Each structure stands twice: as C-alpha cells, then as structure tokens.
Amino acid sequence: SNAFPLAVDETCGMIHGLVSTAEWTGISLSLLLGEARPRRGARWLLAEGADANAMSRSLPMEKALDDVLVALYQNGERLRPEQGYPMRLVVPGWEGNLNVKWLRRLKVVEEPVHTRDETSKYSDLRPDGKALQFTYPMDVKSVITEPSGGQKIAPGFQHITGLAWSGHGAVRRVDVSTDGGNSWQTAALDGRPATYAPVRFRHNWTWNGSPATLLSRATDQAGHRQETRTEWSARYAHGQLYHCNAIQSWHIASDGSVTNVYL
C-alpha cells in the first residue's frame, strides 16, 4: 500500500498473510434465490452477519446468481465457529469481507444499501478526492515467500519460490527478477493453475553474495499484470490500505539478510 512512508520491516506472513485455499461445500445461492422468486427490479442483495459488528455488505444480483455459495462445510467438515458456523457466504474471486460469516440475513433490494462496512471501510480514495466505493474482484497478485523478510541466505544456489493468485481467473504466468526489475525470467508453475486458487511458482538462482533485490510479477488469464508500487500508488490518494496488489520487493544485503523495501 502507500499508507506507510517507509517499508515495514516484517515477514512475508505479516505483510501478505490471510491468504489460504479451502474446499467449500454448501448450497448455491442461485438455488435459494430461485426458490424465493425475487421481484423484478431486484438487482442487489444485502448479506448480514450475526457477529457483534453485524458485518453487512451489498452484493450485485448478477454475482449472487453466478457462483456464490452458502457454505456449510470447509474441507469436508462442518464450519468451525471462527469460520462462520453455522453458515457463511463464499464469493469466489471477490474481496474477502464479502464472504460474510455467521450469516443470519439475506435481503433482496433494488440498490446498494451503503452499509457502514462499505462506506467507512473498503472504499478507495482517488487523487481527485473522489472515492471508488466498490472494488470487488481481487486483482492479480504474487509474492515471493522464500527467500523473504526475516530470513537469511548464504551465497550459492537458491530456490526462489512463492505464490500467485487472481480474482479474475487463473494465473497464466509469473516472472521473477533478481536485479530489481531490470530483467525478468519466467518462473515454473506447479501443475495447472486453477481458477481463483493460489499457484506456487519456482525459479532457480545462484546468489554471488552481492546485494540484490528480488521481485515477482504475475499475469492472469484475463491479461491483467501486476503493477509496480509507484504505478499502483499513482492511481490512489495517499494513505490507502485496501486492495493493493503491487509488486513486492525483497532486498538481500551482503550478509544474506532479507528485508522489505520500496523501489
């Protein structure tokens, strides 16, 4: 993001955590809506959670009728309390807070409800002072997990690896740079990338002991490619935290220590 003037000295997990893959089982929301027979003109849906915050989000009917799931199971077992028991939404490819946990109410409406959780939060301020209220699909993203922040390496052979994903479909390609973006090499992908799911990428490299900066840049099947932090920041006002998919840079010092840096 561009909310911090200096790069935070943290691990990959602290900076890019809260990413996982699971198998969800439940009832298609389109089936439930078909049984309810919404009135004509109903173009949106309000999803409300039973948590203390009453997390609430507006969801376009087009998406609700597409691939949204009212999930009852995760990885073959009933939802755990911290995962939204007894039921939650799963909205493939879209930002995580739309996957409302502890789901207690679905209300069909004609327009977005403009709840607290989609006005005071999760909106993106632009340089001209106008805000982009809804940012639904998660843009293509990748990050090198090894070597990464907090780790230390020795000169010689290095197996660079990381994860890439996209809310616009499957990842098509990941490129890796070991010289701060001056040159790029195509990384190998593990298996066939699945829609919306993270895929692991790998690239072999020999480190000569001199300072170096590692980057990864993903491209998805829709043709979207990760931007640099400078390119991403130019489209938003200062201080934005949400929806940042900019390229992550890891600097390797001459002693082998790895830290987060801005380029």
Score class of each variant (00 low, 15 high):
108 V>C: 11
173 R>L: 13
80 R>K: 13
120 S>D: 09
254 S>I: 04
119 T>Y: 01
70 V>A: 06
121 K>T: 11
161 T>E: 11
87 M>S: 14
161 T>D: 04
260 N>H: 12
70 V>Y: 09
2 N>R: 04
193 P>A: 12
136 Y>W: 12
91 V>A: 00
215 L>D: 04
130 K>L: 08
140 V>A: 08
166 S>G: 12
98 L>A: 04
131 A>V: 07
192 R>H: 09
101 K>C: 08
148 S>A: 15
219 T>M: 07
120 S>I: 07
190 D>T: 14
160 I>N: 01
235 R>P: 02
59 L>R: 04
201 F>M: 03
40 R>P: 01
48 E>T: 15
192 R>E: 15
22 A>F: 12
201 F>K: 01
41 G>M: 06
112 P>H: 02
149 G>V: 00
39 R>D: 13
139 D>W: 08
4 F>C: 07
200 R>V: 14
172 R>S: 14
201 F>P: 00
212 A>K: 02
157 F>A: 15
86 P>A: 09
145 T>D: 00
254 S>R: 10
116 R>N: 07
253 A>L: 05
178 T>P: 03
202 R>T: 13
5 P>K: 03
248 Q>T: 15
222 A>H: 07
189 L>Q: 02
163 L>I: 11
183 S>H: 03
70 V>K: 05
253 A>E: 10
167 G>C: 11
216 S>E: 12
127 P>R: 10
46 L>I: 14
75 N>W: 03
12 C>E: 05
255 D>Q: 04
225 R>G: 09
81 P>N: 13
42 A>S: 12
258 V>P: 01
76 G>P: 04
106 L>S: 05
235 R>W: 09
46 L>P: 06
179 D>W: 06
185 Q>S: 12
